[in-house]
C-alpha cells in the first residue's frame, strides 16, 4: 500500500511540476480531458474498489473467536486490572502485566469503570476502546515468545501518557504451569520483607490493594499478589527496583499526576525500604 501510494504521489506531483515548470505552454485540451477521465475518474474508482474489497474481505477473519483462554482487562485511571479466565480452573487476578501463551488466539474482554481507555499492543494487532457501560472484545495471537509493550491510546486524563503495560508471551506449557501456580499464594516473607509486610498492613495499604494470603484485600488499586514478578511498576512507568518502589510510595502524584493513590511523603526511609523489600519479594 505504501509503495502504491508513493507511486501515485510521484505521478500527480510529476504532472503538476511538468505543467507548471517544465513545459508551461498549452497542451491540447484533449490531453486535459483524458487526464481528468483516466487519472481523476477511472483509475481512482478501480483502485479504491479493489482496496475496499480487500479490506472488507479481511474484516471478518480479524474478529474470529478465540481458542478458549479469555483474559478480562479493565482500564482504570491509570492502570490495568487483569483477570485470567481459563476455560478450566479458577479466575486469576493480576494487574499491569499480561502473560499470554504463544501461538494461541487469546480473547480479551475489555471494559472500563471510569472513563474511556483503549487497549493496544502494537506488535500484536489493532486496538479496541474500553468504554464504560460496554464490553468489547479483541482476539490476539502472539507468534513468538518475548515481551511486548502495550499502551492506552484513548486520552483518559492527566496520566494518560503513563498508562502502559507489558505483555509477556511464553510457551503454552510454561503458561499453563504459570497459571496453575497462581492459585497458591506466594510463600510468607522473611527478614526485612516480613517487617515490610507488617508495615504494609499497618499503614492501611490493604484497604486498596490485595495480596492473596494476607488480610490485604482491597480492590480499588492494582492487585499486588505477584508484584515482585513484574518488570515494571506504576503501569509500566518505572523499572521495578526497590528504589523506585520507595519513590513511587513517597511521591505518587509527582510521578503519576492525579493517580488515586495518595503519596506517603512522611514515611521514614527505612520503613519505605522494608515495604519495597516486601513488595519485591512477592513473586
Amino acid at each position: 500500500m505504501a509503495i502504491g501510494a508513493g507511486v501515485v504521489w510521484c505521478l500527480v506531483l510529476g504532472v503538476a511540476v511538468y505543467a507548471t515548470r517544465i513545459r508551461p505552454d498549452p497542451h491540447e485540451e484533449a490531453v486535459g480531458w483524458r487526464l481528468i477521465l483516466w487519472g481523476g475518474v477511472v483509475f481512482p474508482t478501480v483502485v479504491l474498489a479493489a482496496l475496499l474489497v480487500f479490506g472488507l474481505g479481511l474484516m471478518p477473519q480479524l474478529r474470529e473467536p478465540g481458542e478458549g483462554l479469555r483474559i478480562d482487562v479493565s482500564g482504570e485511571q491509570f492502570w490495568w486490572r487483569v483477570t485470567y479466565r481459563p476455560a478450566d480452573g479458577p479466575a486469576v487476578v493480576s494487574a499491569n502485566e499480561i502473560r499470554v501463551p504463544v501461538g494461541e488466539r487469546v480473547e480479551f474482554g475489555l471494559t472500563s469503570p471510569d472513563v474511556i481507555h483503549a487497549f493496544w499492543i502494537p506488535a500484536l494487532g489493532g486496538k479496541v476502546d474500553m468504554i464504560p457501560g460496554r464490553e468489547n472484545r479483541l482476539v490476539l495471537k502472539a507468534e513468538k515468545p518475548g515481551t511486548y509493550r502495550g499502551a492506552c491510546t484513548e486520552f483518559c486524563g492527566a496520566s494518560h501518557a503513563l498508562m502502559a503495560f507489558d505483555v509477556v508471551a511464553i510457551e503454552k506449557a510454561a503458561f499453563s504451569a504459570w497459571l496453575a501456580a497462581q492459585a497458591t499464594p506466594p510463600s510468607p516473607p522473611e527478614g526485612e520483607a516480613a517487617r515490610g509486610r507488617e508495615l504494609f498492613l499497618r499503614h492501611g495499604c490493604g484497604a486498596c490493594h490485595r495480596v492473596a494470603g494476607t488480610e490485604a484485600a482491597g480492590e480499588v488499586g492494582p492487585d499486588l499478589t505477584r508484584f515482585g514478578a513484574r518488570a515494571t511498576l506504576g503501569a509500566a512507568t518505572l523499572a521495578n527496583t526497590p528504589d523506585n518502589i520507595a519513590r513511587f510510595v513517597r511521591e505518587t502524584g509527582a510521578l503519576k499526576p492525579r493517580a488515586k493513590m495518595p503519596a506517603y511523603p512522611n514515611l521514614p526511609g527505612e520503613e519505605l525500604a522494608a515495604i519495597a523489600a516486601y513488595l519485591g519479594s512477592l513473586k
Partner: peptide, 23 residues
C-alpha cells in the same frame, strides 16, 4: 473510500487546466 473519487477529480481538473494553459 468513495469520497476520495470526487476529491481526486478536483485535483485532476486543476492539473488538466494547467496542462491546457500557458502557465
Amino acid at each position: 473510500e468513495a469520497v476520495a473519487i470526487p476529491t481526486g477529480v478536483q485535483i485532476f481538473v486543476f492539473l488538466a487546466t494547467l496542462l491546457a494553459g500557458r502557465v
